[in-house]
């Protein structure tokens, strides 16, 4: 019984503590992500959402806590080992290489040695999802529009055939129409079976496309539950959806 439910958990984070120098910003974050779900983390600026995702990928050093991915404790593994295990992050602010072509940016998403052999088929898969990137494949990434850059960043995140795709504020700074598009992509990617852990300041959207959600405040999870429950929650309504 417990085995079945355990194996349906793709990622489980226990009591995560992270500090920047002497300043502790995560105070025992615990969360888990079920296979196939879209899970969102909401919370105000500076709550520690990006830090959480960076720690899960391993680009932020963890002080204490446990990160179990596919039943394996990965907390001591370097980021490239985690990417090899098909965990990827589409970071806040896209973080492309502005003076590399779109295609090179995408290819870099399959950098770890075990992923390279499938780089070419995965590239054409990404081009199928984002035809606009194909048109601009030999253009420098720095010359893309904001929306295209976000697509490129997501495409790069798909190059490692993610089982867990983490998205950090994928809609930040984009026009409403592009935001719709991005969330539509997220939904489609999820339908293809990719598990998604998403941070979004667009709380309304995030809660509508995710099945489960966590509310993070000053480095702690203060509320969690099925997304529709959070959507209906008075406190969330008042503090994050701006209704009175």
């Amino acid at each position: 019984m417990s085995n079945i439910s355990e194996s349906s958990i793709l990622l489980s984070v226990q009591n995560l503590e992270v500090s920047y120098g002497p300043v502790q910003v995560l105070w025992g974050v615990t969360l888990s992500v079920r296979k196939g779900h879209v899970v969102s983390i909401i919370g105000s600026n500076g709550a520690g959402k990006s830090t959480t995702l960076n720690a899960i990928l391993g680009v932020r050093k963890v002080g204490r806590g446990q990160i179990v991915f596919k039943q394996e404790d990965i907390v001591r593994q370097p980021p490239h080992e985690r990417v090899k295990r098909h965990m990827t992050l589409v970071p806040e602010g896209r973080q492309l290489w502005p003076k590399m072509t779109v295609e090179d940016n995408l290819l870099m998403g399959a950098f770890p040695s075990t992923l390279r052999k499938d780089a070419v088929p995965n590239l054409s898969r990404v081009y199928d999802i984002f035809p606009r990137l194909k048109e601009r494949r030999s253009q420098l990434a720095g010359t893309l529009s904001g929306g295209e850059q976000q697509m490129c960043a997501i495409g790069r995140g798909l190059m490692a055939e993610p089982e867990l795709l983490m998205l950090d504020e994928p809609s930040l700074g984009l026009a409403p129409k592009i935001v719709d598009e991005i969330f539509e992509f997220v939904r489609n990617i999820s339908r293809e079976g990719v598990t998604i852990l998403m941070v979004a300041q667009n709380v309304n959207y995030a809660l509508r496309i995710s099945q489960y959600a966590y509310l993070m405040e000053t480095g702690k999870i203060t509320l969690d539950g099925p997304s529709e429950k959070l959507l209906a929650d008075d406190y969330v309504q008042e503090a994050y959806l701006g209704s009175t």
């Binding site: 680009v59 980021p79 970071p91 290489w97 502005p98 590399m100 870099m108």
Partner: peptide, 23 residues
């Protein structure tokens, strides 16, 4: 080459390099 791409990646954005698994 993949190595060359990783060099350019680290030059332009080290953090992004780490994210995609450049050692």
């Amino acid at each position: 080459t993949w190595f060359g791409r990783s060099v350019r990646a680290l030059i332009q954005n080290r953090y992004a390099g780490q994210i995609v698994g450049v050692d």
